[in-house]
Amino acid sequence: MTATSTPLIQVAELQSALGATDPPALLDVRWQLGGPPGAEEYAAGHLPGAHYLDLDHDLAEAPGAAGRHPLPDPKRLGEALRRAGVSAGRSVVVYDAGPATSAARAWWLLRWAGHGDVRVLDGGLAAWRAAGLPESTEPPAAAEGDFEPAPGRLPTLDADGAAELARTGLLLDARAGERYRGEVEPVDPRAGHIPGAVSAPTTDNLTADGHFRPAAELAARFDALGVAGRAVGVYCGSGVTAAHELLALEVAGHPGAALYPGSWSEWSGQPQRPAATGAQPG
């Protein structure tokens, strides 16, 4: 499989790639906030040949002052990726249960760490199952890749940078609208949003069946949000669903937006940082 201009791969293309002489490294990164451990779901059935990576332990540091899912230590990330067969010259496909929230985090991390050929299975495991394709309950044979992370290949923001971008560019809040408005806050210290941020829930990137909307529809969505010609950053609760927004932006033809990894979980834990509530102006 060779790199393409899209960060997504469809089920039929992945099925074909997995049967080739040079199949991609396949990563199962199922995770959900407050849900059952992804490893249990992986053991119950996964795409044949997929290695499991744990978002909390492999794709993030421990929660703390920097938020609920700080960026992982590059050395530890590299060890986990190599154990899953990731090599610099081998393409990678990541998936989750759908709709690609945690898979997008893995996609973004690999790109941030310098891997240039990474795609997300559009629709995730749900789409694979809908196509009637086989699953396995057996872990794949041990693998050892050679990928060495070189972090910093994609832009990031710290809290001060996010505040500045909300004033001078466009800072998108990828959480559900009710969390943006401060009506509910299930996990973080305070409700609300970063002043000046614009609500852009990741659910609006998707069709009813959990696939990404076509590129033209996503482009129209982000144009309506004012992306064109502006510096763009994205945050969410802890830097996971924000990666989904960054993936959608790339599908729409707007690569290069920055991630605020600490996101609201970091911002809301700093009492000196203001919190806005209610709907955005206009």
Rank of each mutant, 00 (worst) to 15 (best):
P74M: 00
T6K: 08
L109I: 06
G38P: 13
A106L: 13
G35F: 00
P63T: 01
A88Q: 13
T21E: 01
V118G: 14
A39S: 12
L110V: 13
A104E: 06
G34F: 03
G114R: 07
L133R: 04
P7I: 04
L125C: 08
D122Y: 04
A65Y: 07
L26C: 10
R68K: 12
T4R: 08
R111S: 13
Y52N: 09
I9K: 15
P23G: 06
W31S: 02
E13K: 15
S5V: 15
L26I: 09
D56V: 02
A113T: 11
A126T: 14
L71R: 07
A25Q: 08
G89H: 11
P99N: 02
R105Y: 07
A106I: 12
D28F: 05
D58I: 04
G67D: 13
A39F: 12
L125M: 10
L77R: 01
Y52W: 10
A104H: 05
K75V: 11
V118M: 09
I9C: 10
V92C: 01
G35H: 03
V86I: 05
E61F: 04
S87C: 05
A12S: 08
P134I: 00
P99V: 00
A39G: 05
K75G: 15
R90T: 09
R30T: 07
H69V: 14
W31K: 01
P70W: 10
G64K: 00
Q32G: 09
T21M: 00
G49V: 01
L71P: 00
H115G: 06
L133P: 08
G67S: 11
A17Y: 07
A97W: 05
D54W: 10
L14W: 03
A97F: 08
S16D: 05
H69C: 11
L53N: 07
A100L: 04
Q15C: 14
